[in-house]
Structure formats: structure tokens, C-alpha cells
């Protein structure tokens, strides 16, 4: 009983801490991983790690579109062909992940709870800058694992900023936690070089710039880009229509997140990709 009362007393001082700090205080989340000295044989270099997947995102007329393939690999083995790498964090935020699933999903979970915890305790929504920074901090805390050759995560974060100048916002990160705001598009994962080429080309010399595309046109380009990535990258799953495995495509707009149903993707695929 005494211990309970003491535990409660801490709450009065705890109101300023963020959710990861609360989890650490309760022993529910690991401490930031230590960075091992590579010179003494700490593990493989971060440079040799692959983020085996393809994730892409770009702004279109209806907000931001985020798409990811479904393949999860381990070395040369396909482990799972229905992985969902585009995760909903809150009503207006998506995080798409390339990298080690265990770390990435844990990060997404911490992030999701962080935003809600902030809103509930502080009685206001966390700002977009605050959310972007929160993910950056989680990546930075994970750096030790990255340097040891396990746990690299390179995410994309898409959200809709409902402030006085409402607009869709798109960010990409490196494995150390640096954040970059993307003007038009972002891509990450092993298949991303091909995708980046396509998106650059479409944005500059396509029928119209990405930001002016309607939803069907945007979905079409996303599918073509993912198919192109799957052509040369073994870690990227293509579209398997016999098994009804389609990429995950979600959009973020003023009204929130929409997940595109499979038949819609199938229809667009039929009309403009196949």
C-alpha cells in the first residue's frame, strides 16, 4: 500500500515527461542502445545493411499517397508475402517502414501511444513538428542497434497539418534520425533507386506534376513504380493477382486516412498497369 502511494506521488512530477520516458521509468522499454566501437569488432558496418523493401510516398491533389509492397525477407528467403509496412499512427499520420520489422513495429507502437499520451495528458494535439521530432528521437535512440548490424529502420512519415495553413506534409529519415521534409515525393528501401527515378521523371516530364494527379492517376503511378522496383529488386514483392496480394496503398487528407480497397487497386492495375 505504501509503495502504491509513493508510486502515485511520482505522477504529480511526471506530467512533463514523454511517453518513452514513462515506459523506461516503468521498465517497459529498453534504454537507448549503446554505440559499440566498430574498430574493436562491434559488428558489421551499417553501410552493408539492406532495408529490403520498397516504400514510396508523394503528394497528389487529394493529400499524400503512401504505398508499400508486401514482401518480408530474411537474407535470400521470402519470409512473408502479406506484410503491412504502411502503419497508421493516428487519425492523420502514417508511418511507412523499411528495415527490420521487429524494431520498426515497436517504434510505430511507441509513436502511436506517444501521440495519444501527449494529447490526453496535455489536453492538446501534438504539433506536426513535435510528431516528426518524436520519430527522429526514437531513431536516434536505436542507433546502437544499427551500428551493431541489427535493427536498422528507415521510415517515411506522412501527415496532414491542420494548422492555420492546412497542408499535407511528408518527411523521410535516415537511420540515424535525421529528418528531411520532402517537397514532392520520397522513397525508401532497397527498391527505392528505381522508384526515385520514376517519380523524378513523372514529376518533371510526366503528363502533369505529381501534385496535380487525381487519385486514380496517383494509384496508377504508385503501382507502376512498385512493379518497376520488383523487376530488379528481389526483396520487393510485385503484384500477385492470382493470390490477390496487392500493395498497401493509403492516403492522408484533411478528412483523415483512407485505405484503398483491393478491388479498387485491382481495377486501376487492370486499366493502366497490366
Amino acid at each position: 500500500m505504501e509503495q502504491r502511494a509513493m508510486a502515485l506521488d511520482q505522477f504529480s512530477l511526471g506530467s512533463g515527461e514523454d511517453f518513452p520516458a514513462l515506459l523506461r521509468r516503468k521498465g517497459l522499454l529498453g534504454q537507448p542502445t549503446a554505440i559499440v566501437d566498430l574498430a574493436r569488432g562491434g559488428g558489421s558496418s551499417a553501410m552493408t545493411q539492406t532495408e529490403s523493401t520498397t516504400i514510396l510516398a508523394f503528394k497528389f491533389s487529394g493529400g499524400v499517397l503512401v504505398a508499400g509492397d508486401r514482401r518480408a525477407t530474411s537474407g535470400h528467403t521470402v519470409v512473408y508475402d502479406r506484410a503491412d509496412k504502411v502503419l497508421e499512427i493516428d487519425r492523420h499520420s502514417l508511418m511507412a517502414i523499411a528495415g527490420v520489422p521487429a524494431t520498426a513495429w515497436e517504434m510505430a507502437r511507441v509513436l502511436e501511444h506517444s501521440f495519444q499520451y501527449f494529447r490526453r495528458t496535455q489536453l492538446q494535439e501534438m504539433s506536426v513538428d513535435g510528431k516528426v521530432r518524436a520519430l527522429s528521437k526514437l531513431l536516434r535512440d536505436n542507433l546502437g542497434f544499427v551500428m551493431q548490424g541489427v535493427g536498422v529502420v528507415v521510415p517515411i512519415f506522412a501527415t496532414y497539418d491542420g494548422n492555420s495553413h492546412p497542408e499535407a506534409r511528408l518527411y523521410f529519415y535516415d537511420a540515424m534520425g535525421a529528418q528531411f521534409e520532402a517537397a514532392d515525393y520520397a522513397a525508401t528501401g532497397s527498391g527505392s533507386p528505381a522508384v526515385r527515378g520514376i517519380l523524378y521523371y513523372e514529376n518533371n516530364w510526366g503528363a502533369k506534376p505529381l501534385k496535380d494527379l487525381n487519385e486514380d492517376e496517383a494509384v496508377s503511378i504508385a503501382l507502376r513504380a512498385l512493379n518497376t522496383a520488383a523487376e530488379t529488386d528481389t526483396a520487393t514483392g510485385g503484384i500477385d493477382r492470382t493470390a490477390k496480394i496487392f500493395p498497401v496503398i493509403k492516403t492522408v487528407s484533411r478528412d483523415g486516412i483512407t485505405t484503398l480497397p483491393n478491388d479498387k487497386i485491382d481495377k486501376v492495375y487492370n486499366e493502366s498497369v497490366a
Binding site: F11, S12, G14, F19, L22, Q116, R120, T121
Partner: peptide
């Protein structure tokens, strides 16, 4: 209020 939110949030997370 903070106690209730903390308990619920950590339970919901773990």
C-alpha cells in the same frame, strides 16, 4: 487524472 492516464496507457501499450 495523470495517474489514470499513465496506468491505462502503459497497460494498453504492454
Amino acid at each position: 487524472r495523470m495517474a489514470a492516464i499513465e496506468l491505462a496507457s502503459t497497460e494498453g501499450f504492454t
